[in-house]
Design a protein around this nucleic acid. Structure first.
Length: 649
DNA sequence: TCCGGAAGCT
DNA sequence: AGCTTCCGGA
């Protein structure tokens, strides 16, 4: 029924975007998302369909990338044909040079990375998931046989961050001929994710992971083609209606970091709605009043406080913002009243575990905070019966999804403007460098096999290449009821930690899930243990990032701790006041540590770029970055304080 | 133009 | 494994 390749091509690290050796389909996607190659290759026609407008040029670029000067379209096409069997691609019959991605898998399995990668704008300011994490976290193997079970994977949002980061970082050049250059910078800037990852920083990440590790809202949005937004205009999401008219790209953002990311924004409208809308949100302003005050147990204050927190948490988990960005997504009211099961049920045992790993890691510290947050949440859940709809993931949402893009792609760009030759020559160079952080490669790509039902269908029909266009539509286009996006969204709303029901629901929707090779105990162990910690992590930045700058980032600390902290603050400050700051600074600095795996010049270049990225955020990057940073700092400080407290300082 | 087998390379 | 190279066939 399935070819071997079919079952695992997208789950293997080597097959994942960002893998050390760029693969053709990665490359294709990369080209596709860059405006400068619109004349060479572009999305066209059906969903996921692209046309190679200039076969020779594409071949040339590919050859350049792979250091295969002899490459030509004949060979390249052979390689593409090779993908047929893997179900990565199929040919669009009757259309010259036209192929189509079976992006159900790409989206579901790889898009998270794509998304993360797009954010390649690796959060610079975000305290979250520092690269250093790689040294602390052991990601489960990603070999086909060791693929994480959905649950496990879902429970470890952090993994994605880490992986995303890894990808974002870019990659090792396949060529050592100096034709390689890294391009993460641009990528970060251009990709819709850039903004969110940088400016949105932790907040965005938390947001994303809260929903679903695999796909961020942004990514989803981008995947399903919100209207291309001019780089200039960064406003809220556009009306969904015309979304697909212009942007047919299912992969607005390439899985690989690459040059032209800037331009890629055309395909990645996500940028337009990331920072502003998110940042606009104020979690719980009501908390601020207390911030400046001293510790007191005034019942009234306490009550108000609790309410405020409750509200905050409520808002948080409800994440209405989540759908702010997806106006096209209709969110029906949850059917289920309230879930008896504990919403998040952060396994307490794991707290310590995670905490251990977290020590000295700003990020991990954030986790602690996240935990605190969770605790808070729980406390309130018990104290004040939380609203029924407290958590989206508790109920099986159904979404009204946009239909797949239809019609021809309407490029509004300078069609004739860039001659493929001129632009490509330089870009070919730029494209030439992809480095993967060797240090993180071991992390593999946590992937699970979750395919939409539509994919199941495709499994059987893809082979039938002579199917009519109509059939193709059925096969590859997301079904109206539940397609890749839908599933992804379901996952979003039924995050891992969510009730089992959520998972089950997903599985019910996706037969393939059942076929997913069960994660071996060994593989699951680490993640299972870490998961809760990571889980907590997801909660971390949001409040911090969004909330009114709360001195000391107390916002996310449970009341108990918070009060305690207040109470002992003075003493502590005297004792070890600066230590926290030191940590903070250190953590911030380490965020973008170097990566092995660089090769020759490519490595050097990339390093330089990393350095560059570390410094003042590009003007194109989110303006709010500084603010974010500040908030992050506060968060870190707060967490540091927490740690200090826990450690007895 | 496209397909896919076969062999070879890394 | 993932191509690359070559090639005969449709």
């Amino acid at each position: 029924m399935k070819t071997p390749g079919d079952t695992d091509w997208a789950y293997k690290p080597e097959s994942s975007p960002g893998s050390r050796q760029i693969q053709l389909w990665h490359f294709i996607l990369e080209l596709l998302r860059k405006e400068e190659y619109q004349d060479v290759i572009a999305w066209q026609g059906d969903y996921g369909e692209f046309v190679i407008k200039d076969p020779d040029e594409v071949a040339r670029l590919w050859g350049a990338r792979k250091c295969k000067p002899q490459m030509n379209y004949d060979k390249l096409s052979r390689a593409l044909r090779y993908y047929y069997n893997k179900r990565i691609l199929h040919k669009t019959k009757g259309k010259r040079f036209t192929y189509k991605f079976n992006f159900n898998k790409l989206v579901l399995v790889n898009y998270p990375f794509i998304d993360m990668g797009s954010g390649s704008g690796v959060p610079q300011s975000a305290p979250a998931v520092p690269t250093g994490m790689g040294s602390h976290f052991r990601f489960p193997p990603s070999t086909p046989s060791e693929v994480l079970s959905p649950n496990e994977e879902l429970r470890s949002p952090g993994m994605f961050s880490a992986v995303g980061r890894r990808m974002a970082r870019g990659s090792v050049s396949d060529c050592s001929d100096g034709t390689s250059v890294t391009s993460e910078l641009e990528e970060g800037v251009g990709g819709g994710g850039a903004g969110e990852e940088r400016g949105g920083g932790g907040e965005q990440r938390a947001f994303r992971t809260l929903i679903h590790p695999r796909l961020s809202h942004d990514s989803l949005f981008r995947v399903y083609g919100p209207p291309p937004t001019r780089p200039g205009q960064s406003h809220g999401p556009q009306p969904p209606h015309r979304s697909h008219a212009e942007n047919l790209s299912p992969f607005p953002v390439s899985p690989l970091p690459g040059p032209g990311g800037l331009l890629g924004s055309t395909m990645s409208p996500g940028l337009s709605m990331t920072p502003g809308s998110h940042l606009a949100y104020t979690p719980s302003p009501s908390l601020s009043p207390m911030l400046g005050s001293h510790f007191s147990f005034n019942p009234e204050d306490m009550k108000r406080y609790l309410q405020a927190h409750t509200q905050s948490v409520y808002n948080y988990h409800l994440s209405p913002r989540a759908f702010l960005h997806y106006p096209n997504i209709v969110i029906p009211q949850p059917h289920r009243p309230s879930e008896a099961k504990p919403p998040l049920a952060p396994p307490t045992h794991s707290h310590s575990h995670a905490h251990a790993h977290a020590q000295a890691q700003a990020h991990a510290q954030a986790q602690a905070q996240a935990h605190a947050q969770l605790s808070l949440h729980h406390a309130h859940a018990h104290a004040h019966a939380p609203p029924p709809t407290e958590e989206p993931r508790l109920s099986p949402f159904q979404f009204k999804l946009q239909p797949p893009p239809m019609g021809r792609k309407q490029r509004d760009g300078p069609a004739s403007g860039s001659s493929s030759s001129s632009s490509s020559s330089s870009s070919a160079t730029a494209l030439g460098c992809h480095s993967s952080s060797g240090s993180h490669s071991h992390l593999g790509t946590p992937k699970i096999k979750v395919e939409p039902i539509s994919d199941v269908e495709s499994e059987e029909e893809v082979e039938v290449t002579d199917i009519s266009e109509e059939d193709e539509g059925d096969v590859f286009a997301p079904p109206p009821h539940i397609n890749g996006l839908g599933l992804a969204l379901l996952h979003h709303l039924h995050p891992p930690q969510a009730t089992n029901n959520g998972i089950v629901a997903d599985e019910e929707l996706d037969e393939d899930v059942f076929k997913t090779p069960a994660a071996p105990p060994t593989a699951s162990t680490p993640s299972a243990i870490m998961a809760p910690g990571l889980l907590g992590l997801k909660n971390e930045p949001r409040e911090l990032g969004l909330g009114p700058a709360s001195p000391g980032g107390t916002l996310c600390i449970p009341l108990k701790l918070r009060f305690k902290r207040r109470w002992s603050e003075d003493q502590r400050l005297e004792a070890c006041g600066d230590e926290a700051d030191d940590k903070k600074v250190r953590a911030a600095t380490e965020e973008d540590d170097d990566e092995p795996g660089c090769e020759g010049e490519a490595g050097r270049l990339r390093r330089a770029e990393n350095a560059e990225r570390r410094s003042p955020p590009s003007p194109l990057i989110l303006p709010p970055a500084p603010a974010q940073r500040r908030v992050s700092s506060e968060l870190q400080r707060a967490t540091a304080q927490l740690s200090l407290e826990n450690n007895g300082c």
